[in-house]
């Protein structure tokens, strides 16, 4: 392991912040979901990096779990986006505020 774990972690952090910026900037729900995928991947990088560091397969198991959760989330998220925005002209998450207090 020639590259120090800190480097992987900094990369992971960079991806996470990128994803966050995406979530904040974009108002297109599809882009929101894409950004979330990016953030989940950032998490996966850290998990597998620690797995390598500690020589333990548990980190990889968690990474696989995260992937499954991501797949499920995308299925539902896309289903909602399709159901809601099929009949609307604009894609804007801010319009989904009928449940506000």
């Amino acid at each position: 392991m020639n590259v120090p774990i800190e480097a992987y972690l900094m990369l992971s952090l960079g991806l996470l912040v990128l994803g966050l910026i995406g979530v904040m900037r974009r108002r297109n729900p599809l882009m929101l979901l894409l950004s979330v995928e990016l953030m989940l991947n950032a998490g996966n990088v850290s998990l597998i990096g620690f797995s390598r560091l500690w020589d333990d397969p548990s980190g990889q198991v968690f990474a696989l779990v995260v992937m499954v959760v991501a797949a499920a989330e995308v299925v539902i998220g896309l289903g909602l986006v399709v159901a809601i925005f099929r009949s609307r002209s604009n894609l804007d998450v801010d319009e989904l505020s009928s449940m506000k207090g």
Partner: peptide
């Protein structure tokens, strides 16, 4: 790393 950050920036 460069690829991930670059393409990530592209996504965003």
């Amino acid at each position: 790393a460069i690829g991930a950050l670059g393409f990530g920036a592209g996504v965003v």
